[in-house]
Design a protein around this nucleic acid. Structure first.
Lengths: 242, 242
DNA sequence: GCGCTGTGTCCGGCTGGCTGCTGATTCTAG
DNA sequence: CTAGAATCAGCAGCCAGCCGGACACAGCGC
């Protein structure tokens, strides 16, 4: 399994062969992206929709920053069932497992490009060194992780709703927050979502999602055009909680 | 609401009035606890079981490290319903919201001491400064947050199980990992858990939990003595997934 | 053209939520 | 230490919501 086709196209190291993580240090207002790009051993990758970024069981040696697109983190069970643990939006950090204990560890999630994706990957050791050499790096990473935690906790909130209707509504609102682009008639979720994908994210089944989405559409709350969902009025939708 | 009884007992600042976050810096092998204790403005608190640490709406200005005990992070709805977003174990970092954007923000969770709790609280600004002055601080905090993320994601996995039986089993295993103390006849979860509390954590109802726990007990998989659950054999329990 | 993936719909069956009640246990205040 | 209050646990019955499986069809890519 390890080493199977990855569908990557590497565009070499950092655009400028920066001196180990000091480039970004100079000004304090630099972004996470700048920092990551400046790391030694950093690689900028483009991954096509549906291709794997890492498999469960792969060694965890790099930290990723999602620069563009969406990534799905999922758990695969022996039964073949697959559940989505997180749908990462732009500027999310992932693969942080590698930052933990010095001892070598393996991925247990499956990371797949949910859309065409651009990401920056840096070796964990390199990240550690950069932090030691430049304190502002640590702060930026910390903020990145903090916002990941908040996102994840919102998702937990979504999942503890008892009835599927509330769960779906709550999930749609999360998606609006993370992937929504405002249009003239509401917020459009910029992802091509199949009912199956939604079901895997909120712990339901395809059929149920079809039914509930149909209800929402008939109620005039959402619109679906070629797998893209538009929420007309998030506030009105939020009232749909049981 | 803000400023209501908190049930705190503050034991002054850092035991030694350390120079702004440099104390812990000296040796690289220091712990998160050492770091936090060394921060300027840091406060060590003891909170009794059931007392609130922060309310939703309180200003988010401090970062907490849970030194001893368990903390429940929950969301309170207008309906009066309350769901548990996280059950934090020892050495968990929380209140990280305050690290984010420089602009002032407010808590949206309710943090309650689930057991008698000892915690270290430091102002966000102080944490930021410490990171800038001592790079090793950033790394430690990062590792703390990383492990929080992994915990949270495990919880998401638990919550996406469709049938309540699997969900409960999965949750019990999480609790064993986080709060389990090995005994001569299995692993005992060192928390006094009411059925209601479990229900609020896994999105179910009190009655269902009662029934399912009864089933597990009758199957000889767990034992419950005065609200403390003992799992005889986690491996056997894990086979209980649908 | 064909196959694949995704959507829409129907139905039977059962899980699990809801309500109401009772006895047990724990907490608190006097 | 005890009495009363509050929380907790267990049980039963009812019913809706959701799952599982199955099938037809639409759209799209190859």
């Amino acid at each position: 399994m390890v080493g199977a086709m990855r569908g990557f196209s590497r565009t070499g190291g950092p655009s400028t062969p920066a001196p180990v993580g000091l480039a970004a240090a100079a000004n304090g207002a630099s972004t996470l992206l700048d920092v990551m790009r400046g790391l030694s051993g950093c690689v900028i990758e483009t991954v096509e929709r549906g291709k794997t970024i890492f498999f469960p069981g792969d060694p965890a040696e790099r930290v990723y920053l999602l620069r563009r697109g969406a990534v799905r983190l999922s758990r695969v069970y022996e039964s073949g069932e697959e559940i989505t643990v997180a749908l990462l939006r732009e500027n999310s950090l992932f693969g942080v497992l590698s930052l933990l204990t010095g001892q070598r560890s393996d991925r247990f999630y499956h990371a797949v490009a949910f859309t065409r994706v651009e990401l920056v990957a840096a070796p964990a050791g390199s990240v550690r060194r950069a932090i030691e050499q430049d304190s502002s790096v640590g702060l930026l990473l910390l903020q990145g992780l903090s916002s990941r935690i908040l996102q994840t906790e919102t998702m937990i909130e979504t999942l503890t709703h008892r009835d599927m209707s509330s769960r779906l509504v709550s999930f749609l609102l999360v998606l609006c927050r993370d992937f929504g682009v405002p249009g003239n008639e509401g917020i459009t979720i910029d992802l091509r979502l199949s009912h199956q994908a939604i079901a895997e994210a909120i712990g339901s089944t395809r059929v149920t999602i079809t039914r509930l989405l149909g209800d929402l559409r008939q109620a005039g709350l959402v619109q679906i055009d070629r797998k893209k969902i538009t929420v007309f009025d998030p506030v009105a939708l939020a009232k749909r909680f049981s």
